[in-house]
């Protein structure tokens, strides 16, 4: 029976999350930063699904009709839904920004007083 330790998934998810953070810190392009945030959200999703699966496997050994772990997967589903809504609004904001300052550089965003 193939068994993958939960640690592997934790490390994978942490690595993805950290790459996302590094991306947010190093880049100045607002769209790329936004994409890195999506990456971080996905890292969390992977972790949630992995935990849900682990939880389910543990509960399954006791009760074969268990639905343990469903909540986590639904949680991931809602994260995706919210992410989709967030992206539409976020991109609309970035497009409006671009229209005003003709750049997506976040260093120019200190011009709020105009």
């Amino acid at each position: 029976m193939p068994v993958i330790p939960i640690n592997y998934y934790i490390f994978l998810s942490l690595a993805l999350f950290t790459i996302g953070i590094v991306g947010v810190l190093t880049r100045r392009n607002a769209i790329i930063i936004f994409m890195c945030i999506e990456l971080m959200l996905n890292a969390v999703n992977v972790l949630l699904v992995a935990f849900s699966k682990m939880h389910h496997v543990a509960a399954f050994a006791v009760d074969r009709a268990t639905t343990a772990g469903t909540e986590a997967q639904l949680f991931v589903f809602f994260i995706m839904v919210v992410a989709a809504a967030e992206v539409t609004v976020g991109l609309a904001i970035i497009v409006m920004l671009y229209r005003n300052i003709h750049s997506v550089d976040i260093n120019f965003l200190n011009r709020l007083k105009h």
Binding site: M1, I4, F11, T18, I21, V22
Partner: peptide, 30 residues
């Protein structure tokens, strides 16, 4: 700073004994 964050997180989360199996009957919640 990102690397050190990752180190800290890994250090905090590395000790646990869970596992994931991919047996057919055990994974029907998805």
């Amino acid at each position: 700073s990102g690397g050190s964050l990752m180190l800290i997180l890994i250090a905090a989360l590395k000790d646990n004994g869970g596992f994931i199996s991919s047996m057919r009957g055990e994974g029907s919640i998805g």
